[in-house]
């Protein structure tokens, strides 16, 4: 269903979404009432302590999960109306995930890991290889394409994961604590890479609880108890 007129050009348009979980007999309100719009080429950090609902929000934004109530339009399409296959398609084409634990396939080389999203979108094997190779070069791993994850350092693994997220040229890159498993120096390198990607026009959503990481973003949303506590421009954005 197209409702683009209400989107004002936003990629993501969310109004009053809530997410309830049943834990035995108890009902948990992971998200109570969240509304936000995310526009092209924004660099956004979602912050909050654990239990604030940021993971739930990230899962919903990433179309891994759907809200219990409320409106979620992705590029004008109503996510609540989508089938599992439609959601898979959105995840494949529109969203690039970067996880804290990298989540690479251990048995596959860097190249195969980066090719994987293209496999699911039906790109021919020669195109796949070409695009994956180029993307790995773009993240500075042109010389590591035949290595398997266990032959790479943490920073290199995260770069492979970022290449995998980028290879389909998605509308949004969704990074969940991307530096959580890295030392400070490597973490800074990864954040620099995100900044470069942002400057090239990508839209980036960071989910983090670290102020140091969040200050790279242009806009910060703070969640608490399933509600948006603060949503505004980051006046102290690091532009290095």
């Amino acid at each position: 269903m197209r409702i683009s007129e209400s989107n004002n050009g936003a990629i993501i348009h969310i109004r009053n979404i809530a997410k309830l979980y049943k834990m035995g007999t108890e009902i948990v309100h992971a998200l109570r009432d969240v509304s936000l719009d995310i526009f092209p080429n924004e660099y956004l950090a979602i912050m909050g302590p654990s239990g604030s609902g940021k993971s739930t929000l990230m899962n919903i934004l990433g179309c891994l999960d759907t809200p219990t109530t409320g409106i979620y339009n992705f590029k004008g399409d109503d996510v609540n109306e989508m089938t599992d296959n439609d959601l898979a398609k959105i995840r494949n084409k529109e969203i690039g995930f970067v996880f804290q634990t990298f989540n690479l396939l251990a048995r596959a080389t860097s190249l195969k890991n980066v090719e994987l999203p293209l496999v699911y979108s039906g790109v021919s094997s020669s195109d796949r290889r070409e695009r994956a190779e180029q993307t790995l070069k773009d993240v500075g791993l042109g010389d590591r394409i035949t290595h398997k994850p266990n032959e790479l350092s943490g920073g290199q693994r995260q770069r492979v994961a970022i290449a995998r997220a980028l290879v389909t040229s998605p509308s949004i890159i969704l990074a969940d604590e991307p530096t959580g498993n890295l030392d400070t120096k490597t973490g800074e390198d990864i954040m620099k890479l995100f900044k470069d990607l942002w400057k090239k026009g990508n839209t980036i959503i960071l989910v983090t609880h670290e102020e140091d990481i969040a200050r790279h973003a242009q806009r910060i949303i703070r969640l608490r108890d399933g509600l948006v506590e603060h949503d505004g421009v980051n006046p102290n954005q690091l532009l290095v």
Binding site: L64, D84, K89, R91, N92, L104, S121
Partner: peptide, 16 residues
């Protein structure tokens, strides 16, 4: 299980 999760996150459909 984790691998299945990863594959789904990057766009694998149920049928795949």
């Amino acid at each position: 299980t984790k691998e299945i999760g990863i594959r789904k996150a990057i766009g694998a459909k149920k049928i795949s």
